[in-house]
Structures are given as C-alpha cells and as structure tokens.
Computed example of a mutant assay.
Amino acid sequence: MTTDNATSLSPLIHLVDDDAAVREGLSLLISTVGLRVQAWAEPQAFMAGFDRASIGAIVLDVRMPGISGLTVLEQLLAQGVDQPMILLTGHGTVEMCRRAFKAGAAEFLEKPVDDEVLIEALQNAVRQHVRSRERHQADQQARERFAQLSAREREVLGLIVEGLTNKEIGKALALSPRTVETHRANLFGKLGAESLAQLIRRYAALVE
C-alpha cells in the first residue's frame, strides 16, 4: 500500500490491482494531474482500511484473487460508499460491462487503458463526487434548519408553499397580518432562503 505526499486537500484516488507493475504505472500517471493515489494490492485489505470520508474515486481491477472488482463494487455500494468507481479489465465482455453499469459503476474501461481516457474518467468522477458531497451537505444543513422551526412556523411554511397569501394564511391560522409577516421573515432567515422560489425549493427537497 503506497500513498504520495500531496496535500490532504487534493482528491484521493484508491487504486486496487493485484499486479504490481500496473499499480506502479497507473499511480505515476494519476499523480501527474495533481491527484493523490493510494494503491492496494489486496481488495480485502482495501475494503477494510480505505478512507471512506475522502473526496475522490476508486479504480478497481475486475480480475483479482479471492474477490473480483465487480463484487467489491457491489458490496461497497450496498454499504453506502459514495465514491464513484471505475472498473478496469483485460478480459471484458458485453455481459460484464452491462452488469458493471447496472451495479453503479461510473466507468468500465479495458486494459491496456489509454492514459487520456483514464485521466478524463477520473476527473469526471472526482467532479461528480464533489457535487454529490456538496448536495449532501446542503441537504443536511437544510434538515438541521428545518428542525429549528417552531410548529407554527412549519404550518405557515406549508401554506406559503401551497400558494396562500399572507392574508389567507392569517385567516386559516387565526393570526394577525403582522404575526404572519413575522413568521414569514423568520422562515426566510432560519432556512437561509433569499427568495420565495428558493424557500419553496428547500421545502420541497425536505419533504421528498
């Protein structure tokens, strides 16, 4: 298992292949574009010890002793691992390719893999992972903000989303216009919304 000395802030690529020459060659290639590389010879050791919190991607050889890269992919996805996974194989078949994409592979490439094709696939995977983590963080923040709302504020929010005016909300909840305005202002502040459209989108994301 090897790790380069790049900054911990750069994306981390986990490379899992039982062929030492492949690990060395691909590690050098990947590091040339500013990505950190952690190479693993044994898939079992990788599954037990890799950093699941890191931003990056996973490159898996399909044919490895003990457990195939495709099985590793399926097991990791079942465990909720969110790093995009790229499969490499020297003996690809249509059925294997179909199974890989159906299981959730980000890419399926045949060896010997073209350098530019692999780098492009990795960069796309990293961008995909960054966006996914950002969405997850935004959703988590929205849930935390929603939890801060009072029962009355949630009632007002639901009626705003239904399209009711402040006057109609006041009548429905037996509130004065000033009180409705106060709740409305609190909702925008607590949910971090800058417009009505943004407020509605955040509410919709929470109740999906």
Rank of each mutant, 00 (worst) to 15 (best):
V59Y: 11
A147Y: 05
R63P: 00
A121R: 07
M96V: 05
V94S: 14
L28I: 13
H91C: 04
V33W: 02
A53C: 09
Y203D: 01
A103R: 02
L26V: 14
P11V: 14
V59K: 11
V22T: 10
E208R: 05
L187M: 08
L88H: 00
R152W: 03
A41G: 15
P177Y: 08
Q123H: 03
A121F: 12
G80W: 02
F188W: 13
F101R: 01
L159E: 07
A105V: 09
H129T: 02
E144F: 06
A100T: 04
L9F: 04
A174T: 14
T165E: 04
A39H: 06
E162T: 04
L26H: 01
G49S: 10
R201H: 10
T71D: 15
V156T: 14
V37T: 14
E110S: 14
N124I: 07
L118S: 03
D17S: 01
L206M: 15
D17H: 11
H91G: 00
D115C: 00
E110F: 07
L122Y: 02
A142D: 13
G189Y: 04
L187R: 06
S195R: 00
I119S: 08
A151D: 11
H129S: 06
F46R: 10
L164Q: 13
L199Y: 05
M85L: 05
F101D: 04
L28A: 15
